[in-house]
Amino acid sequence: MPEAKRQNERLVGILIIGVIVLNYPLLSLFSKVKLIFGVPVLYLYIFAVWSIFIGCVALVLEKKTSSPFVTPSPKPEKSE
């Protein structure tokens, strides 16, 4: 089942990216006393990554696993 395998690979990819962006050193870039829209930048960053992560997982899993895209076999062109 190549489609299912693809899905698993995507999920692992999302996990790895998630672990990286939610840890040192990327996290330290946002460890500042600064407010954006009245929210501390650290919290804004974490909650944003969090939501995006959930969105990505949902996207990968809820995508209709339709039959793989079939390319129509090329018809021989009449020589013109």
């Binding site: 999920l11 692992v12 999302i14 996990l15 974490i46 969090w50 992560f53 959930i54």
Partner: peptide, 20 residues
């Protein structure tokens, strides 16, 4: 401060692996 968050970020990350 933000020290309470990893307890919930971990399961979030792990949930990506649940499917398999």
């Amino acid at each position: 401060g933000a020290g309470f968050l990893p307890i919930y970020l971990g399961p979030t990350l792990m949930a990506a692996l649940w499917w398999f």
